[in-house]
Amino acid sequence: MEKQFRLNLKRNKLKFSVTVTLKKDVLDPQGKVVQNTLVNMGMNNLKNIRQGKHFEIEVDENNETVAQKKVNEMCKKLLVNLIIEDYKINKI
């Protein structure tokens, strides 16, 4: 029975990644500093760097559309500040 339970757990787990970055017109001072440092280190082809956040989220759900909807809700309600940040959800 325990085996069956574990199997169910495995099947019900859907994993998503969420990437949060500052919107285009919001100044990203951390990204700028990282960029300047890389240029100083000789990485001359560097055009632009934006620093962001990355979340890996496991959802106990077997329907991908429902799970993705839940992750989207998490983003809107807590993970992302929509005034200044954009986000992308990917299934992993």
């Binding site: 919001v26 100044l27 001072p29 951390q30 500093v33 500040n81 005034i83 200044i84």
Partner: peptide, 16 residues
């Protein structure tokens, strides 16, 4: 600002 009682947000200081 996070509760929405005040609009806008507070970013990292410009000089980090």
């Amino acid at each position: 600002t996070e509760t929405g009682l005040l609009k806008g947000t507070l970013l990292r200081n410009k000089n980090l």
